Computed example of a mutant assay.
Amino acid sequence: MRAIGLMSGTSLDGIDAALVDTDGLDRVATGPSLTVPYPGDFRDALRAILGQTVATEEIRTVERRLTELHAEAVGRLRADHGLDHVDLIGFHGHTILHRPDQGRTWQIGDGGLLARLTGVPVVSDFRTADVAAGGEGAPLVPVYHRALVAGLAKPLAILNIGGVANITWIGPGADDLVAFDTGPGNAPIDDWMRAKAGAAFDAGGETARRGTIDHAFVGRFLEHAFFARRPPKSLDRDDFARFRPDHLNAADGAATLAACTVAAALAARGHLPTAPLRWLVTGGGRHNRALMDGLAAGFNVPVEPVDVIGWDGDALEAQAFGYLAVRSLAGLPLSFPGTTRVPRALTGGRLDRPPVF
Rank of each mutant, 00 (worst) to 15 (best):
I170C: 15
L148E: 05
D130V: 02
I89N: 01
G109I: 11
D80T: 07
R60K: 14
A79R: 15
A147P: 10
A133R: 04
G111W: 14
Q107V: 03
V120E: 09
D181I: 14
E68P: 10
T128N: 06
L148A: 02
G137L: 01
G75W: 00
P142C: 05
I59H: 03
N166A: 09
G82F: 12
H145R: 09
E57A: 15
H94A: 14
L69Q: 02
G112V: 06
I167R: 03
R146S: 08
V143N: 10
K154G: 05
L177M: 14
A150P: 01
D110E: 14
L159V: 11
D101T: 12
G90C: 06
K154W: 06
T128G: 04
A179Q: 09
A129T: 07
R104F: 00
Q107L: 07
W106I: 00
L114S: 05
H94P: 06
L83D: 05
H85L: 12
G119T: 11
F180C: 05
Y144P: 11
E63I: 08
A129Q: 08
G82V: 10
D175V: 08
V86W: 13
V122C: 07
G119R: 13
I96W: 07
A187V: 03
L97G: 01
H145L: 04
V164M: 12
T105G: 00
A129D: 08
H85C: 09
G103N: 01
G134A: 07
R146W: 02
T128P: 00
V122D: 05
G137C: 05
Q107E: 09
P184G: 08
V120K: 11
R64S: 12
A147S: 15
L177G: 13
H92P: 07
P172M: 06
L140F: 12
T67D: 02
G112A: 12
G82M: 12
